[in-house]
Simulated scan of single mutants.
Amino acid sequence: MTEARRKRVRLLQKYVINPPLKALAFAGKLPGHIVLETTGRKTGKPRRTIVGTQREGSTLWVVAEQGRYSGYVANIAAQPRIRVRLDGRWVDANATVLDEDDVDARLASFDDQKHVGMVRKFGTSLLTVRIDTVTGT
């Protein structure tokens, strides 16, 4: 996909789509979505973003729409220890970027097909991220 399209999608999500959804996910009121907190690779400050997930026990699966162009993916690559907001509370976790994962098969495993459709529509460089919660929630 073109760099121009990636920038347009990023701006739309950052300023229009994500803010209200992040508030709902933070409160635990948006099923299939979490707030993910990484450590900024340049600033060292906490960075929060909303992501759609598929939960399998203590493992969460995320398909990053912008792949390695996503700030949170770059932050995970630099520091895989993260926190996730699950059911209205913070949980420590470890994240792994899976370059070789079959993204189409991963998306097929998601329960929320509306979310899958949006990922496919807005995604420019799909990439799987595996999140393992430390507390086993």
Rank of each mutant, 00 (worst) to 15 (best):
T59L: 13
A77K: 09
D101Y: 07
I82H: 06
N75K: 07
A64C: 06
Y72R: 00
I34L: 12
V51M: 05
T59G: 07
L86R: 08
R55W: 03
T39K: 11
A77T: 11
A27F: 11
T96F: 05
G71V: 02
R83F: 01
E100G: 09
S58Q: 13
G52E: 10
G40L: 02
Q54T: 09
R85H: 08
I76V: 14
I76N: 03
P20W: 07
E56C: 10
I34E: 04
I50Q: 10
I34V: 15
G57P: 01
G32P: 09
L86S: 02
R85G: 06
K45F: 01
A77Y: 01
R41F: 00
V35S: 09
Q66Y: 03
T43Y: 00
L60C: 10
G71T: 10
V73T: 12
E65K: 07
A74V: 01
T43F: 01
R48H: 07
D99I: 07
N75S: 04
R48T: 11
D101P: 01
A78G: 12
I50W: 07
T49K: 03
Q54H: 14
R89P: 01
V91W: 00
D92S: 13
A93S: 02
A27R: 13
P80T: 07
R81E: 15
S58G: 00
V91D: 05
N94C: 08
A64G: 04
L60R: 09
Y69P: 00
E65P: 03
T39D: 05
G28P: 10
D101W: 09
G44C: 06
G57R: 06
L36T: 08
S58C: 08
D101T: 13
V73Q: 06
T43G: 02
P19F: 05
T49F: 02
V35N: 14
A78K: 15
T53G: 00
I76L: 05
G28Q: 06
A25D: 03
V97G: 04
W61I: 13
G71S: 07
A27D: 07
A74G: 11
L36R: 02
Y72F: 15
R83E: 12
I76R: 06
G57D: 11
W61N: 05
P46N: 04
L98G: 04
A27C: 08
G28A: 05
P80G: 03
L60M: 11
G40F: 03
Q66K: 08
V84F: 03
A64K: 01
L86V: 11
P31F: 13
T96M: 11
A23S: 14
